[in-house]
Simulated assay, not measured.
Amino acid sequence: MRIAIEAQRLFRPRKHGMEVVTLELIRAMQDLEPSDEIRIFIKDDKDDNCLYNKNNVTVTKTKSYPYPIWEQYLLPSKVKTFDPDILHCTSNTGPLFPGVKTILTLHDIIYLESLNFKGTTYQNFGNIYRRLVVPRVVANAKKIITVSEFEKEKIVKRLNIPDEKISVVYNAKSKNFKPIEDQVKLDEFKTRHVLPDDFILFLGNTAPKKNTPAMIKAYCDYLEKSGDSPLKMVVLDLDENVLKSILEKTGFSKYRYHFILPGYIGADEMPLIYNLAKIYVYPSLRESFGLPIIEAMACNTPVITSNTSSMPEVAGKAARLIDPYKPETITDALLDLAKNKEKREELKSLGLKRSSFFSWENAASQMLTHYHELIN
């Protein structure tokens, strides 16, 4: 087979969920050394060393254009020169007229369920674009892949597609996410980012579903109730002005210096900060999977996460579940785990076992099987 894979944003320096998933999936495919000829189409950007040509998998860099132009015009023309049997679009959308059989990874359909303008301009535009394009791409695709049984049920009902047209391929964690015993390496990272010995870790994405204001309020309530020596909170990828605004609105400006803002931490160094964290909190309102849950678990870090959408499916019984719509439940979980070493150790053990269930090798093998079934 000749397989084309769209990975438009894979070379951008600051990778987030979908780019990380696509990168790990392709790397796992390369390791499997398939007999198929696979070509990856990626928009040129700074991090063009994250993926190499290997075995029968080659990389084609294209010129950089705005998202819709690249996807709807440049990608189909480049794919046509390769003349593949199938095109796999990896990140929720695809060309309306691809000119080839298409398989689409539909991570989620949150943007179809509700539309608000509380995110950044980029996030708002992306949601409008997907809202217009995705239903038509889904209708034209020969196969849909999603990342949890929860999301599959949502997609089937919302887009009225046959159950047999959609399959679940779980995300997984990179092999880099594991307990790290190199104390020198951990200490160097901690010193470089001015981190305390013990802290609570939170990823401060400002997308509304990430629930950042509620998390900050819950942590401040924890500070009010924790007594002496409370844990500080490390919030990644959150702007100083955003934090100050949330603290002012909630009346907790006095606690600004209990927050540490290291900025963006690349995927290669995320295992270090997970290993250093005493507790990891992932209180999203809605997720199709929730990759950081199993990444933190694999690094032997106890996890607090939400009891909504896919998160219980992913976490199993290996995390402390909270109601993300009730910040007081986050506060209670922080108070409990911060003081209870026995519970933290129990979650660590359960988390390591749970995270081992999610393998990129399995995901890549399943995806290759879907490719072949679509052609045969």
Rank of each mutant, 00 (worst) to 15 (best):
F289L: 04
N340T: 13
K341P: 05
P324Y: 09
L261T: 10
V303D: 03
A333M: 03
A338M: 09
N300P: 02
S309K: 08
K317N: 15
Y257T: 13
P327G: 00
L321T: 01
A277S: 15
F252T: 10
P283K: 01
I246K: 02
E295Q: 05
T329D: 04
A277I: 05
G266R: 12
L337D: 03
A318Y: 04
V242C: 02
L247N: 10
L285F: 14
L276N: 06
I273T: 09
I273Q: 06
F252K: 14
K339T: 11
I246D: 09
A298I: 12
M297I: 09
R286G: 00
E328T: 10
V314T: 07
E240Y: 12
E269S: 11
F259G: 07
I304G: 01
K341Q: 13
M270D: 04
A296I: 09
L276F: 13
M297S: 02
T301I: 05
T329E: 00
Y282D: 02
I330C: 08
A318N: 01
D323M: 01
D268N: 13
F289M: 04
A267S: 13
I246Q: 03
G251R: 06
I265P: 07
K244I: 08
L334Q: 11
L285I: 09
D239L: 00
Y282P: 02
I304P: 01
R286Q: 14
S245I: 02
D268L: 09
I246C: 04
I293F: 12
D332A: 14
E328R: 06
V242Q: 03
A319S: 02
N307Q: 13
S309E: 12
M270N: 06
G251E: 11
E269Q: 12
I260A: 04
Y264G: 05
L285D: 00
G251Q: 10
Y325G: 03
P262W: 04
P302H: 08
